[in-house]
Design a protein around this nucleic acid. Structure first.
Lengths: 350, 350
DNA sequence: TTGAAAGCGATACCAC
DNA sequence: GTGGTATCGCTTTCAA
């Protein structure tokens, strides 16, 4: 319950608060000694006293005075999604190593909440923002860049020169999924997607279409766009599968986890089996993909890379030395395959 | 980039900083009016000016002066686990409504990291801590209570009078799983657990055993304890299932998600099917449970209740008016069943 | 190398 | 209802 301040340490060590401040903020030089304009002996004494008294810096005071906070905010659209949770975990670990504290928050897909959260974060003097924007979050984000807080977008894009970006090459992921199925000897490949015009989905669709066309299978392109709401979607997929049996479809690409779940449901309803009736390439991660060996091929986002790159990018933006081109990072997705006969699932490129 | 302070607002509105401070901190009364000792007209003017100027409170300054931060820290042992992620989401939402900012962090099951994180949080002046402790985290937590920060434990227990607790009634969840299987007409029920002595598992085991004994099935109790590492565990479950077929086992209780995953794997390896060869009651949540209709019965922790209760408890601890008994909350788990014929999965009590 | 002193922006206390 | 002002703990000149 006691509060040990910098003055207590200074008094006890018989030096000024300035010295204590210097010592407490000194970083280790390469030679393992503190690099600050303080006599090493004095420094050692200060350190000893600080430790003995149990001194801890009051971040609020430091932040108030310096205007810096050594903290970042990460705002995702849904922290309960495994994808975002994993990103948060990685970001936290990376930032922590660099002495940053990370504040996480979730906008729950609400633009109002995003705006509020950003207000809060601004009030916290965060030095930077990493945001997976929800739909309609443009205005809220302008607020952040408006007050000069460097901001990196992940997962979803929003126009604006100020933003840094770490995004997935969704087009390529669509191509990759399709090409993999070619390699398996399939040509009658279809994709099930949503009607809503999210850019990530549109790009995946384009990748599929382009790959089909390149392979001379333009006439086999079948892109189903179903309703987003769960009940319609469920029924829609069942309907598609029923028809697909008649026309001899060999494989489906399911460009989101939810679409994959609806598809598994449809298989059950229709009494179909996976390698026998259709082949799937799914997206994201699910226990179900790993249920059988070999695992169901699925395209995943390179989570740790997203975390690393977005933190590195943000740091450079905070420092201020970065060109416009460097502010956009496009990462390739990975296709997870394998796992039969004791071989662990692995990645592949197509 | 401009910085609008409370003084700017005061000057522009022609009032003192004190008034502005009052207005900015006023809460809405039930009558929809601000409850503060300020003339409503003045207050309205201040509000208008603040908005026009784009004023935002500097939390660092407020926190420094008041010693309060209106922020909480939530430290889980693994933020990438869906269970914790969901808890974080809920906590964030609840705390947000009460004007608290929540800082999340993940100790990654490392006591050292937990200690560091707690230091950081203390430096942040957080008013309270909600922690899912990792193994060996006792000392780190003492640090928090040592400096007088109210702390609520969730998920795992650690001895100590100072802590608040919101825990699951694991014994009851074991009983519930077993009784449900009785209702299905099964008597030859077994449980697969780990050798490691985690209290939550031990309690679930005890619940199972007690329920069996109460039902006069003491001789049918079969509690398998396998190794924790993935390879041994996988093999262990396969072995158990193979033998179980011979002795006519009807059902298994799988008291963690991982154990359930190993079990599904074993079914695949042995070519077994779920309603035909065995019945399962699983724990936690997985896409696989929802794959078939009716869903595979599974016991879940009441996530939103854990979040609500732990926040409420923490608040009372912060205010300081709470008795020792009220500091421990034990919640009942829920059994999720159903979903056949268009009926959505639901809860049940046994 | 060291120290004195001026704030950072908000709140809390006291006076009016 | 309203206003003046002394802090909170730290960083940061600037001088010594």
């Amino acid at each position: 319950m006691k509060k040990v301040t910098i003055r207590d340490v200074a008094r006890e060590a018989g030096v000024s608060v300035t010295l204590v401040s210097f010592v407490m903020n000194a970083k280790m030089g390469k030679d393992g000694r503190l690099d600050c304009p303080v006599n090493p002996n004095t420094a050692a004494r200060v350190l000893e006293v600080a430790k003995r008294l149990g001194y801890r810096r009051n971040n609020a005071a430091a932040s108030l005075r310096s205007g810096k906070s050594r903290s970042l905010a990460v705002i995702v659209s849904d922290i309960a999604s495994p994808f975002f949770a994993e990103i948060c975990r990685n970001l936290e670990a990376i930032a922590y190593k660099d002495g940053y504290t990370v504040i996480f928050a979730s906008s729950e897909e609400s633009p109002e909440k995003l705006a509020n959260l950003i207000e809060t974060m601004v009030g916290y003097n965060v030095e930077g923002l990493i945001v997976a924007p929800c739909l309609g979050g443009e205005k809220a984000l302008e607020r952040a860049t408006g007050v000069g807080i460097p901001t990196v977008l992940i997962d979803r894009d929003i126009p604006g020169d100020e933003f840094g970006r770490v995004l997935l090459d969704n087009y390529d992921s669509g191509v990759m999924a399709t090409k993999y199925l070619f390699h398996q000897g399939f040509g009658k490949i279809e994709m099930i997607s949503y009607k809503l015009g999210v850019t990530s989905l549109i790009d995946r669709e384009a990748g599929y279409s382009a790959a089909m066309e390149d392979a001379g299978l333009k006439d086999e392109i079948r892109l189903h766009r179903i309703e987003y709401d769960a009940d319609s979607a469920k029924k829609g997929v069942i309907e598609i599968f029923r028809d697909a049996l008649k026309r001899g479809t060999e494989a489906f690409i399911l460009p989101t986890k939810k679409l994959a779940m609806y598809s598994f449901n449809a298989l059950n309803v229709l009494g179909l089996n996976l390698p026998k009736d259709f082949s799937f390439v799914c997206f994201d991660e699910s226990d179900i993909y790993d249920l059988k060996k070999p695992v169901i091929p699925h395209v995943v986002q390179p989570v740790s890379e997203i975390a690393e790159r977005s933190f590195a990018l943000l740091q450079r933006m905070i420092e201020g030395n970065i060109t416009a081109e460097e502010k956009t990072v496009i990462l390739k997705a990975r296709l997870i395959l394998g796992g039969r006969f004791g071989v662990r699932p692995t990645q592949a490129s197509f």
